[in-house]
Amino acid sequence: MNKEAQNYWNEYWGDQVKPTSVSAWKFGDTTDRLAEQVVSGVKTATCSGHVFYELENMSLPKADEYGVILNSEDQPVAIVKTVEVSIIPMNEVTEEFAIAEGDGTYENWRNIHVKYFSAELQKYGITFKEDMLLVCERFKLINIK
């Protein structure tokens, strides 16, 4: 976590006992738009390819973990708390979840994610498949900077 995110985290909790499970992160290729959607309450979910956690040897997210959302300049904009994590094939994601991601419609969500995952997978020499596993997270907004 960078210094600005750590300071924001510490300021938010003040003298209270802080949760220990926190990370700072930003969203894919439209970082600022998605961060603003979190701040405005439009975006209450996100997903990522399960394969990327394996390739990058990262732990999967868990419910009750916190995140400091960063903008494209790595500045903190909000704190969220993960409330649910599930692993679902992309072609089984519900319309309700897709809309919770802030893309407006299921069709928009699907088009955006097929394009994004195809490009990201190609970097590893992997071909996109409709049933690729996604790590689907729901979160609630805790604080806005």
Rank of each mutant, 00 (worst) to 15 (best):
L34V: 02
Q16R: 14
Q37G: 04
F52L: 07
G14R: 09
P19N: 02
V22E: 05
D74N: 11
S23W: 07
G14K: 03
T44M: 04
F52I: 00
K62H: 09
Q37W: 02
S72L: 00
T44D: 05
D74Y: 14
Q37D: 02
V77I: 11
T82Y: 14
K26Y: 07
K43I: 00
N10V: 13
K43E: 01
E73G: 10
G67T: 04
N10Y: 07
K62V: 03
S59F: 07
G41K: 01
A24F: 08
W25Q: 09
G28N: 12
Y12A: 03
D29V: 02
T44A: 10
D32L: 00
V77K: 02
S23G: 10
T44C: 11
L60D: 03
T82E: 13
Y53P: 01
E73V: 06
G28W: 03
T44Q: 09
V38T: 01
S40K: 06
G41F: 04
L70R: 03
V22G: 09
G14H: 01
V85P: 15
P19R: 05
S48D: 07
E73Q: 12
A78L: 12
T31R: 02
Y66E: 05
T44F: 05
Y12V: 03
V85N: 08
D64G: 03
V38C: 01
Y12C: 01
S59V: 05
P61K: 02
S23P: 09
L55E: 04
S86P: 14
D29P: 04
V17I: 15
M58D: 12
E65H: 06
D64T: 04
E65D: 06
A35I: 00
Q16F: 10
Q75V: 12
V39A: 01
D29S: 09
T20R: 11
N57K: 09
N10L: 13
S86A: 15
A78F: 11
D29K: 06
D74F: 15
D74R: 09
A24N: 07
N71F: 00
P61D: 05
S23F: 12
S40I: 01
T82M: 15
A78D: 11
V42N: 12
V42S: 06
D64H: 10
Q37F: 09
D29C: 06
W13M: 11
A35F: 00
V68S: 05
F27V: 04
H50L: 08
A78V: 10
R33A: 15
A78I: 10
S48W: 06
T44Y: 03
F27D: 02
T82P: 14
V83P: 15
A78M: 11
S23R: 10
I79F: 12
T30M: 13
V22T: 05
S86G: 13
N71R: 00
V17G: 05
G41M: 02
Y53S: 00
P61H: 03
V80R: 05
G14V: 05
S48C: 07
E36W: 00
P19L: 08
A24R: 06
E73R: 12
G49D: 10
K26R: 10
G49I: 08
P76N: 06
V77A: 07
